[in-house]
Simulated scan of single mutants.
Amino acid sequence: MDGFQAYGAGKAGGVFDPMTFFRQPQTLVRILCWLFSIVILGCVANEGYTNRPEEDEEFCIFNRNQNACTYAVSMGTLCFLCCTAFIVLDVYFPQISGVKDRKKAVMADIGVSALWSLVWFVGFCFLANQWQVSKIEDNPLNEGADAARASIVFSFISVFTWGGLTLLSLERLKRVSFEEEYNKLFSPAVA
């Protein structure tokens, strides 16, 4: 068992290696998801609202539907925070020595990644539909049109990046499950 190191368990408690961490596909995809959430949040929060000179109140450029802008801003914010939390978990994952705790972390990652993929799919459909039915009269100068299109595109791309994270987490679960089975078979029995 000296040479066996199933996904870092043999190195539990070791020193954090940033080069190894940033070379992992899961880390790279998670950072992309984090950046995409920032782009969506920034596009809608900065240029998603406009007003006409004769009106005092701002309105959402997505068909004057306040729910569309609220959805994009809140999901961008929650996704940013969720990505940050899971990046921190990825940093500490090799230090988790218990296989059951590692398995719980990976199962949480699978569930959250699949949920975010669904959330961004709904967001893409909602934003694209509201943008499609927007009236020219509501925004004659086409203010924020590029930001609206960018938020729609990055919502679409986020569906696939979060789906990719789900698949990478499933692979990680296989490794952790293998480690658990290995420990059951080859651990000395406690009397």
Rank of each mutant, 00 (worst) to 15 (best):
W131D: 14
S169I: 10
M19L: 12
T77G: 02
C60Q: 00
E137D: 08
A105H: 04
Y49W: 13
C79A: 15
K135D: 01
K100V: 14
T27P: 04
P18N: 06
G123A: 03
S187A: 13
F124W: 09
E47P: 05
C33Q: 03
K104N: 07
V119L: 12
F178P: 11
C82K: 06
W34K: 03
I87L: 15
A108S: 15
D101I: 11
S117C: 09
V106T: 08
S37L: 00
F121H: 06
A6W: 10
S151A: 10
P94L: 04
T161S: 15
V88D: 06
G48S: 03
K11G: 15
I38V: 07
F22G: 02
C33M: 04
G48T: 01
F62E: 02
F121N: 03
T84I: 07
F186L: 13
V153R: 02
K174L: 15
F124P: 14
F126D: 05
A72K: 07
S37D: 02
A145R: 09
L41K: 00
F4R: 10
F4G: 04
Y7P: 08
E180S: 15
L32H: 08
G164I: 04
E143Q: 02
I87P: 08
T84S: 14
P188Y: 13
F59L: 03
D56P: 07
Q24L: 14
R23V: 07
L28W: 07
S74W: 02
A128F: 10
E58K: 10
A191L: 12
A6K: 13
W131E: 05
F121K: 06
P140W: 04
S74G: 09
R30N: 08
S151P: 00
G76Q: 05
R52K: 12
F80P: 08
D90W: 02
R149W: 11
D109Q: 15
Y71G: 04
V159A: 05
I136M: 11
S74A: 09
G111A: 11
E54M: 10
E137R: 14
C43Q: 02
K100F: 09
A85T: 05
L167T: 13
G3S: 07
E137V: 06
E58C: 10
Q24E: 14
L170H: 10
Y71I: 04
S134Q: 04
Y7V: 08
A9W: 06
Q66S: 12
D56G: 13
D90H: 04
F160T: 09
E180Y: 10
D146G: 13
S97I: 08
Y92R: 10
A6T: 06
D56C: 13
F186A: 15
I40M: 04
L127C: 03
V91M: 12
V106R: 05
G144T: 01
E55N: 11
W34L: 05
S74I: 11
S155L: 07
G76R: 00
L78G: 11
S187Q: 13
L28E: 14
L167I: 14
F80H: 06
A68E: 01
N67H: 10
F21S: 01
P53Q: 06
F59P: 01
T161C: 14
A145K: 12
V88L: 15
L41Y: 02
P18F: 10
Y49S: 08
F93R: 01
F36V: 04
G10C: 07
V176C: 09
E58A: 11
L173I: 15
A108P: 10
T70S: 07
L168C: 12
